[in-house]
């Protein structure tokens, strides 16, 4: 009964994979640690801010009634999120539209930064948990703002407490798991193709597989995060049915 797992990891080709599962610390100052995912996150935020500034100074300044291509794209992007926020959360769409657009942009660019050789910003469980916690706060503050004390009736059934607490956990692991799995599969492909040297396969195979595992995940996961946030907020701000009315209707029907 030998141990195969130690042999599997002993073929030092896959040993590099083990270090990539969790982010490695780059800067350590006491208990304050910065890992490579956080650095990629800083870069993403910086790039997003610079792009927003450039768009503000160039495209938005020359806003016209006959739109250019850039203006069309911007209008489509913003109105896509605003429209879905409008449909789901009527009164709070001014708040939820920009939030979902920002979160989706961060997730999308945080995954796409993998193409430039960085570790994806979302492949860190802290980043996922931060995003999920933002959503959690939005759900419950908006729920209490809309329904005030009536929202507490929701907690009469103790199962609802567990349901509410599981939302950020499930959002965290959905995001983290899908991005991490995409990253690990791509790293495995990179390791495997090192030994295949003919037909220029090392050149073609990653070019085919990267869009599958990186691009696809980036767009799908950011869309799913945005629409799940909106769905949960819609559920929270739904006003509970008023019981006296229902009784009256029943009485009249009888």
């Amino acid at each position: 009964m030998g141990d195969f797992s130690s042999q599997l990891l002993a073929t030092d080709k896959f040993a590099g994979l083990k270090d990539k599962i969790f982010p490695s610390d780059v800067i350590v100052i006491g208990g304050f640690r910065i890992n490579d995912s956080v650095i990629a996150g800083f870069i993403v935020v910086f790039v997003l801010l610079v792009v927003a500034l450039i768009l503000r100074l160039t495209v938005i300044r020359h806003w016209k009634t006959t739109p250019s291509a850039a203006q069309m794209f911007l209008e489509w992007l913003v109105s896509f999120f605003d429209k879905s926020a409008d449909e789901m959360t009527e009164n709070y769409s001014k708040l939820m539209g920009p939030y979902t657009l920002g979160a989706a942009a961060y997730i999308c660019c945080g995954v796409l930064i993998e193409m430039f050789g960085f570790r994806p910003a979302i492949a860190d469980i802290g980043a996922c948990f931060a995003l999920a916690l933002c959503t959690f706060l939005f759900i419950h503050t908006l729920g209490f703002v809309k329904n005030k004390a009536r929202r507490l009736l929701h907690y009469v059934n103790p199962i609802n407490i567990v349901t509410d607490l599981s939302v950020p956990v499930s959002m965290t692991f959905r995001l983290f798991g899908s991005i991490l799995s995409g990253m690990v599969i791509m790293d495995m492909v990179y390791i495997l193709i090192e030994s295949i040297w003919y037909f220029g396969l090392p050149l073609i195979l990653p070019a085919v597989l990267t869009p599958l595992f990186t691009l696809f995940h980036a767009f799908i996961q950011s869309y799913v995060f945005a629409s799940l946030t909106l769905t949960f907020v819609q559920e929270a701000i739904e006003s509970p049915p008023k019981k006296p009315k229902r009784k009256k209707q029943k009485a009249s029907a009888v």
């Binding site: 692991f173 959905r174 690990v184 799908i220 629409s227």
Partner: peptide, 23 residues
């Protein structure tokens, strides 16, 4: 897409567990 995201979650959990177990 929303339903697929929910259905996909269990698969992702399984993948995460197996990756953690291996590495």
């Amino acid at each position: 897409l929303l339903g697929l995201a929910f259905a996909e979650t269990t698969a992702i959990y399984g993948l995460l567990v197996s990756i953690l177990l291996i590495f």
